[in-house]
Write a protein that binds this DNA or RNA. Structure first.
Lengths: 111, 111
DNA sequence: TCATCACTTGATAAAGTGTGCAACTGAAAA
DNA sequence: TTTTCAGTTGCACACTTTATCAAGTGATGA
């Protein structure tokens, strides 16, 4: 293999590193969605959504199918869901820790 | 909380989205390392390493302690290790799938 | 004290990313 | 056939990230 694994990992995480792409994956891991359905949940321009979907397509995390007038997206790597859950767990830990630290510094109010 | 969770997640993944930072976390999840030890394993300039360590510090994923002449880093969120393992599993799946696809397209050699 | 090792910081140029607008394609409805 | 809805693509601009070089701090050893 030409690309070292740690670099592939970095690129993988990079594709997860955008709020819209996270939202897309969260919605798609519930069920398949057409683009206009995603659009109803995510507050960005259609062209921007399309671009983020393209990023996810390029990395094979989602696939699209044309169904009549609409394009339906699905996750092609179901394990991504676990990853998002793991991230949430870690994150709540980190955020809680930072919260404590903050309260120690200024016990009256959080910034 | 002011920052929506999906945005916090995106930022979290973004900090993982760099090959040097992945290497650092992998090394640190084995055991603590001084900066010059990391430097021996990761092929980048000291200043660049320092910069990446700063990114990880800012997001509270690692902590540093001065021990005499050297600065020792440790992971402060051990669950990160699971995340890296999960990423590797997902990634090998995706890479394998792409490999198959590639062989179908050109059965003789992979690009 | 002076030199040196171990790191960090600052500045800057180059590369990469994201955003919004306009133009374009395909399918369905009028 | 013409419109309209559903998406995508191209492009210009702003913003961010990264790499590198030079300069600076802190501790140790000569």
């Amino acid at each position: 293999m030409s690309v070292p694994l740690y670099q592939a990992k970095a690129e993988f995480f990079k594709t997860l590193g955008h709020p819209a792409r996270i939202r897309i994956l969260e919605l798609l891991s519930e069920r398949d969605h057409a683009v206009h359905e995603l659009l109803a949940h995510i507050d960005i321009e259609p062209s921007s959504l399309s671009q983020q979907l393209a990023v996810l397509r390029r990395t094979s995390l989602v696939t699209s199918t044309r169904v009549g007038g609409e394009v339906v997206y699905s996750v092609s790597v179901p394990e991504v869901r676990d990853l998002l859950l793991a991230a949430r767990r870690i994150l709540s830990g980190v955020i809680a820790a930072q919260g404590e630290l903050e309260s120690e510094l200024s016990p009256t109010a959080g910034s």
